[in-house]
Nucleic acid binder design. Structure first.
Lengths: 188, 188
DNA sequence: AGTAGGCTACCTAGTAGTAGGATGTCAACC
DNA sequence: GGTTGACATCCTACTACTAGGTAGCCTACT
């Protein structure tokens, strides 16, 4: 299973940095050191490969979300930990895998879309839960429903990632994160 | 100049819907009804074409921003009008041209990046101005600097566009816009 | 005469994907 | 214990097609 994992790691990096339409099997072959044709043994089509990628990525996310949820920290610290994931993505010169594929969704095999939707649904669901908990603990002041705030936070983080790629301004990304969280906190 | 404009319109739509790496000269040729080779008469390279696109798009934006700025409406209405631009983009099945290219920036000819940066800088600058005016008029309550809020708003709008593409949930987009604006308003 | 705008025909490189063979591993069988 | 067959992994070689881009020609307008 060593080679399969190498292929997935290489493909994941390529999708996050260059997009589905921005890389080819040849790029992966060069990187992992086998021939292009051999890649088709593991993943018959590019769609198969990226579908696996989305599933793996979602599973990795799930593990992180559970780790954060189970930590004995206040809700605002959990939001910070969540934002920290995006920070790491930015530092490695990548987009969120889901975000990248979302922009390209009109060019993707429709078979990928359900998994992609699930990815975003899971993010929204988790954020909603954290916001609801922070709300009943009087930590957060919400001007809309927890689900609405969750979608807004997710949008802002994805967008901040996108903009930081164009501007190169990582400090602005951090500032946006801080503003998003401080905007939720009870004043005084 | 008729054909040139047709080419630009077609290319703009293709970039916004499919991304730089998701369309080809053949797609444009099919659409505008001339041969692929003839396109090179107007735009020698794909980079030339997209560079022009970014400049035109920025100029169109500038006109809209001035129109909104000069309207005799309160700052929150101006923000709504700005968000309305994004709403229209979403309804036509497109990403923001800048946002789409931003995600693909690692695969673009570096010659495109300065114009792309200017596009985002202009958006941020305009939003900052509107927010500052709303602030001195005691319409908005800001928890950070006007520039910080501007970047956050821009991020959230771009991200909301991206997510709406994956989920197909346009109502969520509208809700995010409302939440962003109501979150700025002075309470009570 | 020069230029703008279009054409056919072509080039080189790269795309995803296939065919079929070489090598190796491992388990079942006699 | 050695043979056999199934399967995994990787290869060379290739197909069919698309990519961006070029060469050179034709026509119409100024």
């Amino acid at each position: 299973m060593e080679m399969r994992d190498q292929i997935l790691a290489s493909a994941q990096r390529l999708v996050q940095q260059r997009g589905f339409n921005g890389f080819s099997y040849a790029d992966i072959a060069d990187e992992v050191g086998i021939r292009k044709a051999s890649l088709h043994h593991y993943f018959p089509t590019k769609t198969d490969l990226v579908l696996t990628l989305v599933e793996v990525y979602t599973a990795q996310l799930e593990a992180e979300l559970l780790r954060i949820s189970n930590a004995p920290s206040p809700a605002n610290a959990k939001l910070r930990a969540y934002a920290e994931i995006y920070h790491g993505t930015l530092e490695s010169g990548r987009m969120c895998l889901g975000g990248m594929l979302a922009t390209e969704s009109l060019t993707l095999d429709p078979a990928l879309l359900p998994s992609l939707k699930r990815f975003f649904a899971r993010n929204t669901e988790w954020l909603t839960e954290i916001l609801a908990v922070g709300h009943v603990q009087h930590l957060f002041v919400l001007t809309g429903s927890a689900a609405d705030h969750a979608r807004m936070l997710l949008s802002a983080l994805q967008g901040a990632l996108l903009i930081a790629r164009a501007t190169g301004d990582h400090a602005a990304f951090d500032m946006t994160v801080s503003l998003l969280i401080s905007g939720l906190l009870r004043k005084g």
